[in-house]
Simulated scan of single mutants.
Amino acid sequence: MDLPNLLQVLGDYDAQSSVVEAIYRMSTSFERSKCVTQWFPDLDCTLHSLFIRISEFDPDCRRFLNAFNAFHGDNRKVYTLPCLSAIIGKLPLSKPKDPSYQKFWVDFNLGSQTILLLCHKQPDIIRMESSASPPWESLVLDQDDIQKVVLTRTVQVYILEIVMVKVEKVAELFSSPLSLEIKSRLTEVFVFEFAPTVVLEKVCALLFCEKFKIVALEPEGWVNIAARASCTQSGVRISWQV
């Protein structure tokens, strides 16, 4: 089976997820337990266990692929980071409401040159639209539709501002119809908040190149130990200049 070898080559989380789903559809539980070390010979036993224990597909596949991509360090083509908050203009977003979806994940896809965000509109906005529970939104921000990206570093939080080419492109990201109330809240600006991490700086520089700039608001001489630690834990190696 050649599908497992595609996972490291594919630079898109959705594509990786589709490959894992295909493997599961084409194999039995016994075959997966028997062949997992052959399919993924470079992975350790923890990742093998995460793979063969996939049952509730979306959250279990997410756990496996997050660990799989992080395992490959600098060679990975998908970087996944949990954000603290996300908002488009005046429209707040939240993580999917599935209790097994523990964090608000943002996927930075170097292969497809996109950012993927699985989300819900905030509960108060949902109630204004309908009493029914809405489906997840899968927002894909394409590099070609992005005008500029600014990362503002502070001591306690990193703020990532993504400015789209025009607000119409933002409305097109949603799969479900948007009410006039929702549309009135939209602007071309996405704002994400992350815990300080150098991994975010690295992946934004790789993904956005000349569109990307950093605004440092930390005190002069400040060294963020937490950001360094997250960098080391994620397998990213950066030359530090203090």
Rank of each mutant, 00 (worst) to 15 (best):
220 E>P: 09
142 D>Y: 03
32 R>H: 03
218 E>T: 14
239 S>W: 03
118 L>W: 03
66 N>L: 08
166 K>R: 10
62 R>V: 11
157 V>F: 04
142 D>Q: 03
146 I>Y: 09
17 S>K: 10
151 L>A: 13
235 G>H: 00
192 F>N: 05
123 P>E: 05
68 F>Y: 13
107 D>Q: 10
3 L>M: 03
20 V>W: 13
126 I>S: 06
101 Y>S: 15
12 D>W: 00
171 A>H: 13
75 N>V: 02
200 L>R: 13
37 T>W: 05
11 G>D: 00
195 A>C: 08
178 L>Q: 10
188 E>M: 09
176 S>T: 15
76 R>F: 05
62 R>D: 02
101 Y>C: 09
183 K>G: 08
60 D>F: 01
61 C>M: 15
228 R>Q: 15
36 V>H: 03
223 V>D: 01
19 V>K: 08
89 G>A: 05
21 E>Q: 09
31 E>P: 08
226 A>F: 01
203 V>F: 00
217 L>D: 07
51 F>Q: 14
82 P>E: 14
184 S>I: 08
41 P>D: 15
23 I>N: 12
92 P>C: 01
5 N>E: 10
191 V>K: 06
59 P>S: 09
119 C>D: 02
78 V>A: 04
228 R>Y: 05
235 G>R: 00
180 L>H: 02
76 R>M: 06
199 V>R: 02
136 W>Q: 02
56 E>R: 11
141 L>W: 03
86 A>K: 01
12 D>E: 05
70 A>S: 13
152 T>G: 04
148 K>D: 14
35 C>I: 10
222 W>T: 02
159 I>W: 04
17 S>C: 04
223 V>G: 07
156 Q>A: 07
44 D>I: 08
70 A>F: 05
62 R>A: 10
209 C>N: 15
90 K>R: 02
3 L>T: 03
155 V>K: 13
20 V>Q: 00
152 T>Q: 13
236 V>T: 15
163 V>S: 07
5 N>R: 14
220 E>A: 11
43 L>E: 09
242 V>W: 04
220 E>C: 13
117 L>M: 14
231 C>E: 08
217 L>F: 15
200 L>A: 06
20 V>R: 08
97 K>S: 12
171 A>Y: 12
83 C>D: 05
121 K>F: 02
14 D>C: 10
185 R>E: 10
90 K>I: 07
81 L>H: 15
213 K>H: 09
102 Q>E: 11
181 E>T: 09
92 P>K: 09
56 E>G: 06
199 V>Y: 00
103 K>A: 12
94 S>E: 15
60 D>R: 12
192 F>C: 06
66 N>G: 04
64 F>I: 11
28 T>W: 07
154 T>W: 03
